[in-house]
């Protein structure tokens, strides 16, 4: 009865992998760290703008119009002599608020639509599929302009428009992913262990789609910043009194041939922030997917980098 065969039968001893949390792996990831740094700077600028800016961002100075970058005005001044750096910092507030709120809205919208659209009764499921397909056909900017036309242009309208249209997009991407995970063997095995349907959703399906979800969220953040800038540029977004990067572009673009630098700064701010969110998405996907990660917490991108740079 008690045979000694309870002893290990497979020869290769198992060496416990050193497992780092994905936060640490993200910080060690080259593009992850850089993009996170850029986003942190934007957030910090927005936060600091509440207590301090180099100059009052809304005070005009007729004697300081179109100043070139200098020690006094690091990024120069605009047509009415306002300090560009101060206005950029103020604009960062709008960017941060739009990126977080619109992305959160899109995340909730997208997840609910995708989950209900996959697991609900047929009479609910199929209309949702149709709704997703129909809403996909309308570009974000068009929806935002329609909303702005009927409710007046404001940052809130931009957030709702961008949040909902990106939420639908997330749902469209997530639905086949969810269906695939739901049909996998390990979900069946977990069901066989007695895990309830909500338990399966929470423990297996949502974690299973997280890598895709995270990439979509960072894309959404990037797109919402871009959409906000675009709508403000066109005059649908932030009211003219407030300062947003899109507005700054709109105000300076008339003078692009005379004072190109004044256009470059807000343009650069938008571009770099959007790029940072895109790169953050890629980095997050790599560090949250255990199949892309080795025991030591390095991942493919880092190993490739090391083969290029050589051992340190």
């Amino acid at each position: 009865m008690s045979r000694p065969s309870a002893a290990p039968m497979e020869r290769a001893p198992f060496i416990a992998p050193r497992h780092r949390s994905w936060v640490i792996r993200l910080l060690r990831h080259p593009t992850g760290a850089v993009s996170l740094g850029v986003i942190a700077i934007v957030c910090l600028a927005a936060a600091v703008s509440f207590v301090w800016t180099p100059y009052n961002p809304s005070s005009a100075d007729a004697y300081a119009r179109w100043l070139a970058p200098s020690g006094a005005h690091l990024l120069g001044t605009d047509a009415v002599g306002r300090d560009t750096l101060s206005r950029l910092m103020l604009g960062a507030r709008v960017t941060v608020v739009v990126a977080t709120v619109a992305t959160a809205l899109a995340a909730v919208c997208g997840t609910v639509l995708a989950v209900v659209g996959t697991f609900s009764y047929r009479v609910v499921r199929e209309p949702i599929a149709v709704l997703i397909d129909v809403l996909i056909a309308f570009p974000t900017l068009l929806i935002a302009m329609m909303l702005a036309a009927s409710f007046g242009g404001s940052t809130a309208v931009v957030i709702v428009a961008v949040g909902i249209s990106n939420g639908v997009n997330i749902a469209r991407v997530l639905r086949p992913e969810i269906r695939q995970v739901a049909g996998s063997d390990f979900v069946r095995a977990a069901r066989a262990c007695g895990v309830s349907k909500p338990g399966i959703l929470w423990r297996h399906i949502l974690p299973g789609v997280t890598p895709v979800f995270i990439v979509q969220l960072s894309l959404t953040a990037a797109l919402s910043i871009l959409a906000e800038a675009g709508l403000s540029f066109l005059g649908f977004g932030a009211p003219s009194a407030s300062s947003s990067w899109g507005r700054m572009l709109a105000e300076t673009q008339k003078y692009v041939t005379a004072y190109p630098l004044a256009v470059v700064w807000p343009g650069l701010a938008v571009t770099i922030t959007v790029l940072a969110f895109h790169l953050l998405g890629d980095a997050l996907r790599e560090v949250t997917d255990p199949q892309l990660t080795r025991y030591d917490g390095t991942n493919r991108a880092m190993r490739q980098l090391r083969t290029l740079v050589g051992p340190r």
Binding site: V187, A190, A192, H204, P290
Partner: peptide, 20 residues
């Protein structure tokens, strides 16, 4: 399920969640 009747499936490759 699990408490009174348990089951083992054919494919060990896919019967376990890669994330847990």
């Amino acid at each position: 399920r699990g408490d009174q009747i348990g089951i083992v499936f054919q494919e060990p490759q896919t019967a376990l969640s890669p994330l847990r």
